[in-house]
C-alpha cells in the first residue's frame, strides 16, 4: 500500500472533488454552469481574503482593486498579446502578486484603520486609473475572451461548460496550493503572528516580511479571481470593480469563517445564492422597485451581521464547539 501523507490525502480529495464537479457539470443546464463558475470565482476571492485577514491579521477593504489588476493583466495578455487563456490567467496571478508585493511593502507599517483606509482608497481610485491609459479602454473597457472550448471536447460542449471547467479547475488548483501552504510551517507562523504579533516577533519571526508576503500571496489569488470574473462577463472595465464587490467578498469571507479555508465554497455559494433567493422572494411577494432592487443588499448585510454576532469564527467553529460540549 502507498503511505498517504496529509498532503497526498488532500491532493486525492481535491482530484476526487474536481472529478465530481465536472461530472455534475454534464448533468446540469447552462444557467447552473454559469452560476457554478461564479461560485468558484468568489470562492477564490474569499480564499484571498482569508489568507490576508484570517491568517496574517491584515484587513483589506480594497480587494476589488487587486482583482482589477489581475483582470486587466489577463485581458491584455490574451486580447492584446494574443497569449493562450491559461497562460494569460497565470500571468494575472503573477502580476497581481507583484502588485500586492509592492502594495504590501508600502503599507507594511500600517495597521488597523490606517490599513483599512488605504486599501479603501485604493479600491475607489485604482479602477478609475484605467481611464488614464488608452490601452486599457477607458470607461468602455476591453474585451476578455477566452474563446470557445477546443474542438476535441465535441460540439455539445457549450461556452458555459467551458467557463465552468476553467474556473473550477483554476479555483481547485489555487485553493489546493494555498491549503498546502497554510497547513505547513508558513501557516503556523502566520497564525502565530496573527494571534500575538509581539510574541511572534520575540520568538524570531520576521513579522514585517511575513505581512508583505501575505499581501503578495493574497493579491495573486485575488488576481486570478479577477481574471475569472471578467472572463465570465466577457469584458473588463472600471465599473466591474465597484466598492460593493470588495465588501461582498469580505462578507463571503466572514460568513465562511475567516480562520479556515474549509468553507470557501460555502461563501461563494452564499454570494451567488442571495440574489437568486431575493429574486424568488420578490416574484412570490412582489413589491415596489425600491424593495425588489434593495432586497439582495439587505439580505447580504443581515447575513453579515448575523454571522459576526452568532458565528464569529465561522460556522465550522460553531459545530466544533457543540461537538466539544457534547463530549464533556
Amino acid at each position: 500500500m502507498i503511505k498517504t501523507t496529509p498532503t497526498k490525502k488532500r491532493l486525492l480529495l481535491y482530484i476526487f472533488f474536481g472529478w465530481i464537479l465536472l461530472i455534475l457539470g454534464d448533468r446540469v443546464g447552462d444557467l447552473e454552469l454559469y452560476q457554478g463558475s461564479f461560485v468558484a470565482t468568489y470562492a477564490l476571492a474569499i480564499t484571498s481574503i482569508i489568507l490576508l485577514t484570517g491568517y496574517s491579521g491584515q484587513l483589506s477593504l480594497g480587494h476589488g482593486a487587486l482583482m482589477a489588476v489581475g483582470a486587466y493583466t489577463g485581458a491584455l495578455s490574451i486580447f492584446n498579446a494574443g497569449l493562450h487563456p491559461v497562460i494569460g490567467l497565470i500571468i494575472s496571478v503573477f502580476v497581481a502578486g507583484i502588485f500586492g508585493l509592492i502594495l504590501g511593502l508600502v503599507v507594511a507599517r500600517l495597521s488597523g484603520p490606517y490599513l483599512a483606509g488605504t486599501t479603501l482608497a485604493l479600491a475607489i481610485s485604482l479602477p478609475t486609473l484605467a481611464n488614464q491609459f488608452p490601452i486599457l479602454g477607458g470607461e468602455e473597457g476591453i474585451v476578455f475572451d477566452v474563446g470557445v472550448a477546443p474542438a476535441r471536447f465535441g460540439d455539445e460542449f457549450s461556452q458555459y461548460k467551458w467557463f465552468f471547467w476553467i474556473s473550477t479547475l483554476a479555483a481547485l488548483i489555487m485553493v489546493w496550493l494555498v491549503a498546502n501552504l497554510l497547513s505547513g510551517r508558513y501557516g503556523r507562523t502566520f497564525k502565530a503572528m496573527r494571534d500575538n504579533p509581539v510574541a511572534a516577533q520575540l520568538s524570531g519571526i520576521n513579522v514585517g516580511q511575513l505581512k508583505v508576503m501575505a499581501f503578495a500571496l493574497s493579491s495573486g489569488v485575488a488576481g486570478l479571481s479577477g481574471g475569472l470574473l471578467v472572463m465570465l462577463i466577457s469584458g473588463v472595465s472600471p465599473s466591474a470593480f465597484p466598492l460593493s464587490l470588495s465588501f461582498a467578498v469580505l462578507t463571503g469571507a466572514v460568513v465562511t469563517g475567516l480562520y479556515s479555508l474549509k468553507g470557501v465554497i460555502l461563501g461563494g455559494l452564499v454570494l451567488v445564492a442571495i440574489p437568486e433567493i431575493a429574486d424568488s422572494l420578490v416574484s412570490r411577494i412582489g413589491g415596489s422597485e425600491g424593495f425588489t432592487t434593495t432586497l439582495p443588499g439587505f439580505l447580504v448585510s443581515a447575513l453579515l451581521i448575523l454571522a459576526v454576532v452568532f458565528t464569529p469564527n465561522g460556522p465550522g467553529h460553531l459545530l466544533k464547539r457543540h461537538h466539544h460540549k457534547k463530549k464533556v
Binding site: T53, G57, R194, V254, F291, F298, V300, S301, I305, V308
Partner: peptide, 23 residues
C-alpha cells in the same frame, strides 16, 4: 481574532441595511 474586524464588518453590514431600508 475576530475582535479586530468585527466592528468594521458590523458597521458595513449596518450600512447595507440602512441603505436597503431607504430603498
Amino acid at each position: 481574532p475576530i475582535v479586530m474586524i468585527a466592528p468594521v464588518v458590523a458597521t458595513l453590514g449596518l450600512l447595507g441595511i440602512i441603505q436597503a431600508i431607504i430603498g
